[in-house]
């Protein structure tokens, strides 16, 4: 009963991810097959790695020389932003029992965004809500990759631009935060610092750069005991 209610509550906010992950997952599966990998590669990579951008990068690395250390370092670099998600979820995921391991395991961009921003109904257990959001996202991603891997190149999708659904999701979550807050400085800081970092450092390093700057600025803010003004 408790679980069914949480699953129902989690399904609706997960719908944009269903669209986005199925589409991107199918693209990823097709791409891996076209590069000569068997079905099991996209299937197990989407299941175990569960970090889209790394999986795409791995496709070309797996065709090069054997270099496990480079894979490790590159993954740490691409996914460093996940540390920020964990820091932000420390309190929310604290009392979730055995589910905590899986919640952390599945903490991708989208699971973080939905679970952090969600207004969970009073009668729904937050732990189970987080769990089902994460599980559904995971299933959508593995499902998409498997469908794409199965169908290979025999699929025509008149869906150019559907990948924008993930941008739309992130923009809406940003706007929700924006309309909720009185003080927009943190939101603007995120936009500004990241844009600047992208301009200066380029696509490969800008997230790391932005993280370092945001981290330092917030440490200074903490030292000065600054808090955003509340509504």
């Amino acid at each position: 009963m408790k679980k069914t209610r949480a699953l129902k509550a989690a399904f609706l906010p997960s719908l944009p991810i269903l669209a986005g992950f199925l589409f991107l997952g199918i693209t990823y599966g097709i791409y891996m097959r076209s590069q000569g990998f068997s079905f099991w590669y996209p299937f197990s990579m989407s299941l175990f790695v569960f970090a889209g951008s790394v999986e795409f990068v791995l496709v070309s690395l797996l065709q090069g020389a054997y270099a496990p250390l480079s894979v490790l370092l590159l993954t740490l670099m691409i996914n460093a932003r996940h540390m920020f998600y964990s820091i932000s979820m420390l309190e929310k995921y604290e009392a979730t029992g055995w589910k905590k391991f899986y919640l952390i395991y599945g903490l991708c961009d989208e699971s973080f965004s939905i679970n952090y921003a969600a207004n969970i109904p009073e009668d729904v257990d937050p732990g189970w809500f987080y769990f089902f959001v994460t599980l559904l996202n995971h299933l959508y991603w593995v499902g998409g990759a498997s469908i794409g891997a199965f169908l290979g190149n025999h699929l025509y999708l008149p869906t150019e631009g559907l990948e924008f659904v993930l941008t739309a999701l992130l923009v809406v979550i940003f706007l929700e935060q924006w309309f909720k807050e009185e003080d927009h400085r943190l939101s603007l800081l995120g936009l500004g610092v990241t844009s600047l970092s992208l301009l200066l450092l380029g696509k490969e390093f800008f997230i790391l750069g932005a993280m370092v700057i945001l981290f330092l600025l917030l440490l200074i803010a903490w030292r000065k005991q600054w808090t955003p003004s509340k509504k």
């Binding site: 921003a117 992130l170 923009v171 935060q177 943190l186 995120g190 936009l191």
Partner: peptide, 9 residues
């Protein structure tokens, strides 16, 4: 809030 801005970019 800063992360959401970062993710949009």
């Amino acid at each position: 809030p800063a992360i959401f801005g970062m993710l949009v970019i």
